[in-house]
Design a protein around this nucleic acid. Sequence first.
DNA 1: ATGTAATCGTTAAAAAAATAACAATGCATA
DNA 2: TATGCATTGTTATTTTTTTAACGATTACAT
Lengths: 209, 209
Amino acid sequence: MQKSNKVSEAVIRRLPKYYRYLKDMEKNGVQRISSRELSDKMGLTASQIRQDFNCFGGFGQQGYGYNVSELCNEIRKILGLHKNYNVIIAGAGNLGQALASYVGFERECFTIKAMFDVNPKLIGLSIRGIQILDIDTMRDFIINNDIHVGVVCVPKNKAQEVTDAMVECGIKSIWNFAPIDVGTPDNVAVENVHLSDSLYTLAYKMNEI
Amino acid sequence: MQKSNKVSEAVIRRLPKYYRYLKDMEKNGVQRISSRELSDKMGLTASQIRQDFNCFGGFGQQGYGYNVSELCNEIRKILGLHKNYNVIIAGAGNLGQALASYVGFERECFTIKAMFDVNPKLIGLSIRGIQILDIDTMRDFIINNDIHVGVVCVPKNKAQEVTDAMVECGIKSIWNFAPIDVGTPDNVAVENVHLSDSLYTLAYKMNEI
DNA sequence: ATGTAATCGTTAAAAAAATAACAATGCATA
DNA sequence: TATGCATTGTTATTTTTTTAACGATTACAT
């Protein structure tokens, strides 16, 4: 029943949020939920929720609602979180280390295989069992270890260069934290995370209120 | 010439991106730019750029384009980045420390005044000159130090509680990194940053390609 | 000084997204 | 087993957002 029409970016951006709420409910033993209840919890409209879910097929049942764990599983699959991904982090500075220490990712399907840096003081250290290696060895490591995701935590002026190296070695997605929009070929997914953008938006809102 | 009509969320979310590109151009000595050139650089349409800027008034000149540093300044003001903000960070774990170490924020208008934690091993330490204090002293600190922004980097189950404390002590905006949507009263701005949402979106895209 | 090309601001049109409406369906209860 | 109620899936409507079009204005070259 999967609709083959292209799913809009707006819907995709909401999927992780649904997943977050559903996972939480599942953990708390909630077995069923209606679009109405979910809309109250999440601050969306019930109509939007039903439309969103219907992009992927009918997960609910009339007169009943949605089975929480079933729905949660479906969304997990849609997002691709039922698979396993090998991850490396380029740049073992504060942010790189913070991401490496974040247990949440491991609990899902992402396994951080190594970190890379240029700093000799960092090379050789381990963060939560994840080794920091010389960035000169990154290319070989990617090629030999079936790495799917490259996290970019290097300074702005090295971000595109590091990204290019990852892409050349066959990485299929880039999660970039450098404060610049890195580019990739069409067949390599990229998420440019701009923490400062979010802070600036907050400044705007704070002054508007 | 400021339009008083409410500016849409979509436009506001693009402002920091404009700011980022313009600041960069200014630093590189670019003096003028047309909506067309900017659209090429940023991957937007020229039409959208002109419309966005016109929400706030006419910053350009026909036949010429926009003066980069003038435009950059205007956007800085619109975002409220010409003011100064005092910031505290609740939670001095890896992410809290990473944010504290991020020089970029200091270079703008945000001054991190202190960090707070429950962990006795962390209390008393300093990160880049920023002291880590006992979280029990946070309320008094906020009240006595004119704090504008509260950054929440505590575990999920403490996030709302810490937010509430901040709000009660008069903080005007919350930048939350805990993996839960914290709520605030209407007169307190909030940005819930969900790093994992971005990673999950990346997983989706990677599988879709 | 004049004409041409460039480019904005603004209005109009198109596309996308969100919301509302409602018929169809299955659950729950008597 | 039959009836009513709840709730979905889906279609229609409204709203928002994006894109296109174009007249007005200015820089720049001749």
